[in-house]
Design a protein around this nucleic acid. Structure first.
Lengths: 97, 97
DNA sequence: TGTCAATATTGATGTATGTCGATATCTGCC
DNA sequence: GGCAGATATCGACATACATCAATATTGACA
């Protein structure tokens, strides 16, 4: 893996390398349509609303979650391509040819 | 994914969420036997020897690399179980059932 | 035993990150 | 317009981390 290749994947890994964000991602993926309202995610954690909002923003910035505002509520949807890219990372790119 | 489950996987993700360590891991995996001497890895980077030693230690502590000292040289070998665990994370645990 | 080469540890430093309280922004509704 | 609730942003703080120079440790060998 080249330095450029690493620089492409590392932001996604960094985004997931946090227990709160990994659980957020898992929660979104477990919903039908891989979509969840921020209001459903917040009560699952013993953290403040700004902190959860911050983590969701990090996941969004990494390309792992799409953001969709519907009225007052914001829905986050998992991006399957991003997950697939990480899956193949450990199956193909990282593993020997 | 539970909080405990996340806490188990996050250390491995954190270890890989660094461009230098991801490349180190990739380099080790690309060698025959998924094994490489530290002396081969160092010149591939524009970083000091202590820094590379530190990164290898992080990967070892995360359970991603085994350490084997042979004389003056130290060989690092990838742990396939760890890689497999991460692969299934994105295929099964993280993705919806 | 002494020297040299490979690797690890220590201590320091600048930067990044997780968290919070306070506040701002946006949207539906009266 | 004005209020209430959902979400985001800001500023601050403590901690974690990547990196280096200097030094220590280890092992081979003369």
């Amino acid at each position: 893996m080249s330095a450029e290749g690493a620089d492409q994947v590392v932001p996604m890994l960094k985004a997931l390398a946090d227990p709160v964000r990994l659980r957020l991602m898992s929660m979104v993926l477990s919903r039908v349509g891989a979509e969840a309202c921020a209001c459903e995610l917040l009560p699952a954690f013993d953290l403040s609303q700004p902190t959860i909002s911050h983590h969701l923003k990090v996941l969004h910035a990494a390309g792992l979650l799409d953001r969709d505002k519907r009225g007052v509520w914001v829905y986050y949807r998992a991006r399957p391509e991003a997950i697939a890219a990480l899956g193949t990372l450990f199956d193909a790119s990282l593993a020997p040819a």
